[in-house]
């Protein structure tokens, strides 16, 4: 059904023109000595560094440490967000009980929680995972509530007319209807988790991409700082692509009509 649209070659060229142009100007400025190499190393130098720390296993070690934290924190935050969001979405009273607390706590930036978590839990793994959990929790929570609330009453009426049990209505009508919104929450949550892990590692860690960047800066290795920053961007991008793929696979019905 969903036919793959063939993207014209010119469109591809135009869309990658800006990043390529930036890299070229960057490279020339660095080679000609227009910019301080300690502040902006040449592109080739960054690339060599990336290859170097990949070969020694240094990069993958840090990356794996960060990814494992993200996975743990994301799973915890997403499950909590879906569970509490479901309760708040269904029950008026649970919603009244918790909504003011949510509005008070939600605007606090994740960075502000890090000192509190360190105070409570020290600088161990638990602190970092907790920051990620909280970062994931908010967008998943809000989108789950929103998804469950927005179920079309007309579709619920049909289920009532067909004398469906409450359990069937929840599983077969409300949840599927809420799923696109929950997925949006998960994607936003994954973005938050990825930025939280970097922030937490910059403040308190001995391993991970965030730590690698901070440490490279302290030991005056600017190329390594840039490698770290680019890797964060790339991984974030790939995770989002992966989640989008998963979404369009699971929610085929949401897009199936486009290529009618």
């Amino acid at each position: 059904m969903a036919k793959k649209r063939k993207i014209p070659v010119t469109e591809i060229i135009v869309s990658i023109l800006a990043p390529v142009l930036l890299l070229v100007i960057w490279q020339i400025s660095a080679q000609k000595g227009w910019v301080n190499k300690a502040l902006l190393p040449a592109v080739t130098r960054i690339f060599d560094t990336a290859v170097g720390i990949s070969e020694t296993g240094k990069l993958s070690g840090h990356l794996l440490a960060s990814l494992s934290r993200v996975v743990k924190g994301f799973l915890a935050g997403a499950s909590l967000g879906i569970a509490i969001g479901t309760l708040m979405g269904f029950s008026k009273w649970v919603n009244h009980f918790l909504s003011s607390l949510v509005s008070l706590l939600r605007p606090i930036p994740m960075i502000a929680w890090i000192p509190i978590f360190i105070l409570w839990m020290g600088i161990g793994e638990l602190t970092k995972i907790s920051v990620i959990t909280l970062g994931t929790f908010w967008p998943v929570l809000l989108n789950t509530i929103q998804g469950i609330r927005s179920v079309d009453n007309k579709l619920l009426e049909v289920a009532k007319v067909l004398k469906k049990k409450r359990k069937t209505i929840v599983l077969k009508v409300v949840f599927p209807a809420a799923l696109p919104s929950i997925f949006t929450g998960l994607r936003l949550g994954m973005g938050a988790a990825w930025s939280c892990v970097v922030a937490a590692e910059m403040i308190a860690a001995r391993q991970g991409i965030g730590f690698m960047i901070t440490y490279a800066r302290e030991t005056a290795k600017p190329a390594e700082v840039f490698v770290g920053v680019f890797v964060i961007g790339l991984i974030g991008f790939f995770i989002d692509v992966l989640l989008r793929r998963l979404e369009s696979h699971l929610l085929k019905w949401n897009t199936a009509g486009v290529s009618k």
């Binding site: 469906k164 209807a177 019905w253």
Partner: peptide, 24 residues
């Protein structure tokens, strides 16, 4: 009962929508 709008479940196929009408 059939309503003015078809009120089908968009996440179910034609066969699955009809199956939803079958008692448990």
């Amino acid at each position: 009962m059939a309503f003015q709008e078809a009120r089908l479940y968009p996440w179910l196929t034609v066969a699955e929508n009809i199956e939803f009408g079958i008692p448990d």
